[in-house]
Simulated assay, not measured.
Amino acid sequence: MRLRIEADAVVLDIEGTTSATGFVVDVLYPYSRARFAALLTERAGEPAVARAMARVRELTGEPDADAVRIEKTLNAWLDEDRKATPLKTLQGIVWSEGFARGDLVSHFYDDVVPALRTWHAAGVRLYVYSSGSVAAQRAWFSSTPEGDLLPLVSGLYDTENAGPKQEPESYRRIAATAGVAADRLLFLSDRPAELDAAREAGWRTVGIRRPGEPYYGQGAGGHAQAGTFDEITVARRST
């Protein structure tokens, strides 16, 4: 069954929606885990690294935590799959460099890229909102098996520049920044709590349900749902 949604812009979640969570957990997480120690010891003076380390100390209440202690915290957060902003910032630095070196190539489900190109060609603006940092998102979309997809994307949002993904205010902030009316924004995600927050902010929502993904068993939580992107037609407002 196809869905037809009237919207001027689509905002995309990544894990479980455009891409397999398993790739992130099985490939990207170990890649960052193996490189945190060097990042924290050799590059602690770099502003982005220093800010993230300071934020880890703040969140853990350990103002004197050294690089070894911070690394242990980051690895514990990885084990918990915690969406902590400093963890995502440091992962983004490591992953960006891995993608640039060619160590990493991102994953997209087969139905995603053709749909994104179709929507973009029809004048629908595309945005990304992920718990992964903007730096990681930029690397992810620029280093795909289909080439550089960044030209398709009008903006990137994470928990630092937009806010937590389960809070309606984050979606209001994105709408204001993007300059798109709430009821003309479509959010695609596999997580019902995120879809709930977007709907509370006035957005249109579709739950993406892919077998094998962690949130598949939760259903769509009363939202419209689709198994693949090619089940969704996005139409801009008629003029």
Rank of each mutant, 00 (worst) to 15 (best):
T73W: 14
A44V: 08
D103F: 10
Y29H: 07
V113G: 03
R117Q: 15
D230F: 06
Q166K: 15
L59A: 10
D8W: 02
L12S: 02
V11Q: 03
L186I: 00
F108Q: 11
G155Y: 10
L126A: 08
G212H: 13
T73A: 11
R101M: 13
E58V: 00
D158N: 03
G202W: 10
D190T: 00
A67C: 06
A84M: 14
D79A: 14
A198T: 10
S142N: 04
D190R: 00
D158C: 03
A38S: 10
F23C: 04
L87H: 07
G202A: 07
A121Y: 00
E46R: 04
R173L: 14
R35Q: 05
G132M: 05
G219H: 09
V206K: 00
L90E: 03
S106I: 09
A54M: 08
A44S: 15
T144K: 10
R69C: 08
A224W: 09
K83L: 03
D103N: 07
G212P: 12
V25D: 15
G155L: 06
R209K: 06
L116N: 02
A135E: 15
T118V: 01
S142P: 03
S130N: 05
V112L: 13
G207W: 11
A201N: 02
F108E: 04
R173H: 15
R199A: 15
S143I: 01
H107T: 01
R172E: 07
L3W: 14
G163Q: 03
A198V: 03
S19C: 06
L116T: 01
R51H: 12
V128A: 05
T41G: 13
V49A: 12
A20D: 15
L150M: 14
P114Q: 03
A182G: 01
T17F: 13
S143P: 00
G61I: 00
T85H: 05
E58K: 04
S19Y: 12
T60D: 14
D196F: 01
V113N: 13
R173F: 07
T73Q: 14
D110H: 07
V68G: 07
E146Y: 12
A76D: 15
A76Y: 12
D13S: 06
A176Y: 03
L90P: 04
A122S: 11
D148M: 02
L152I: 06
V153I: 15
V180P: 15
G102T: 01
I70N: 04
M53C: 14
R82V: 01
G207N: 05
D111W: 11
R43E: 14
R43I: 08
E15W: 09
E146N: 08
A9N: 05
P63M: 01
P47D: 07
G221I: 11
P211R: 04
A76R: 08
L195S: 01
Y171A: 01
S131E: 11
E15G: 06
L185S: 02
F229E: 04
Y127A: 07
A67F: 11
L116C: 05
V27M: 13
A197D: 07
R236I: 04
M53F: 08
A76G: 08
N161D: 04
L39T: 12
E71K: 10
E80Q: 13
R184F: 09
I14D: 00
E46C: 02
A136D: 13
G92T: 00
G123M: 06
A220P: 13
R209F: 11
P47I: 00
A65P: 04
R33S: 11
P151D: 00
E200Q: 12
I232V: 15
T85V: 15
E169S: 03
P47W: 01
A48M: 14
S154R: 07
E160L: 12
T205F: 12
